[in-house]
Simulated scan of single mutants.
Amino acid sequence: MERRSFLRGAVVGTSAAAFGFTLWQGAASAAPAQPGPGPYGALGPADANGIQLPAGFTSRVVARSGQRVGSTSYTWHNAPDGGACYSDGTGWIYVSNSEINPSGGASAVRFSSTGAITGAYRILSNTRQNCAGGKTPWNTWLSCEEVSLGYVYETDPYGVKAAVRRDAMGRFKHEAAAADPVRRAVYLTEDESNGCLYRFVPTTWGDLSSGRLQVLVAGTATSGSFSWADVPDPDGSPTYTRSQVSGAKRFNGGEGCHYADDKVWFTTKGDNRLWQLNLLTNTYELAYDDSLVSGTAPLTGVDNVTGTAFGDLFVAEDGGNMEICVITPDDVVAPFLRVGGQSSSEICGPAFSPDGSRLYFSSQRGTSGSSSGGITYEVTGPFRA
């Protein structure tokens, strides 16, 4: 699956994306990613933060649950989970969910142009088990409740506007969201063993207050064609949204979701798979499956996923051996980093700074194995541009 041309097309314009499609058609039935040497080389010994990184990369702790963030007066939330980055003048902001129930919510950290922490604050409160979510093209953060009949909340990373509950996006066990500005839709994963993949098509792009919730309809195979069908009752009561449409395709524990250049990648934790939707051809296939690799699978416990302009995908592990693995455009999967001494935790919230030079992520329960022990990190180094 030659992703590089597509993701670069997202940076330079739609004409490049159209050219990339011609190239991709020849690789449309590529096999799932296989283990191989990573683009950044082997992992080195653990640093002072217990993180193994390739040569040239360094880590720092940004925040710890229950402690003040940097020199600010703001106390970081418990169980940090899904996250995203936003430009902020000459600096940037990293947003992070809190996967606790009750309370939940989300917080943000503000950075200067040099990476110094200049502020931290709450952007969502009094919600339930906010796991993953997604960034919108209009620079809001969709924070998703991972509970039965959960909601999506649209929040302001800049801390100015009040959060708004988006009922029209459906009530189910929400996990992640990924916005598609071409088809003007938001894709949504569902963390159920017999869950579905949804898309929300707003009545007006940029306004999530009304629209149609649809579910992906396809066969039972691991590749094929798909279509979308309206969910009659997005409220999910008395019949769950995943049970309302005949032929809705089942996915085993939907997790992370990422959109780039007419493709959606999403993970399913129940079978350790990364799926790919080709939105130009309305086809789907496996991008990774740990049961189909040659030798030992480097990536297990698949969870949150993000991508770079170069075309690399970065997939975080919930369990496994606490790694973030990279899947390259030529379908090679390899560890990028490994967190030691935190086997009772999970990695979540991977997101790149706007210039692509810094990767943020969290260990949800840290060394303690408790939600009060969460740690949020930053990794800096020569990421491929």
Rank of each mutant, 00 (worst) to 15 (best):
C85S: 13
T118S: 10
G159I: 08
E99L: 00
G133F: 00
L142A: 07
F111H: 06
R171G: 01
P137Q: 13
Y86Q: 04
G134N: 01
S143W: 03
R171L: 11
P137K: 11
A178R: 15
W92K: 07
P80V: 07
G105K: 00
D156I: 14
N126M: 13
Y153D: 10
I100E: 00
T118M: 08
C144G: 07
S98L: 06
F111R: 07
F111A: 09
N126V: 13
A79C: 08
S148A: 13
L124G: 03
D88R: 15
V147D: 02
G170E: 01
D81G: 07
M169R: 10
Y158V: 15
V95W: 00
S148L: 12
N97K: 10
S103Q: 12
G150C: 07
T155H: 03
S113Y: 12
S112L: 08
T136S: 13
A116K: 15
D156Y: 03
R165W: 08
D81R: 14
S103F: 04
E145R: 06
R128K: 14
K173R: 15
T136Q: 08
T136N: 06
V164Y: 03
A79E: 00
G150T: 07
T155L: 05
A162I: 09
V109L: 07
W92A: 10
T118N: 09
G134V: 04
G91T: 07
A132D: 05
S96Q: 14
D156R: 14
A177V: 14
D167K: 12
R166T: 07
L142N: 03
N130Q: 11
G115L: 10
R122K: 14
A106Q: 01
E154V: 08
F111G: 03
L142P: 00
V152C: 07
F111E: 05
M169C: 09
L124C: 06
R165K: 15
W138S: 03
S112Y: 04
T118Q: 09
T118F: 10
Y153K: 11
R122S: 09
T155S: 10
A132N: 10
D167W: 07
E99H: 06
V109R: 03
V160W: 15
R165E: 15
V160G: 08
E146C: 07
L142M: 14
S96E: 04
D156E: 11
R122H: 05
A176H: 06
E146P: 01
Q129T: 14
S96C: 14
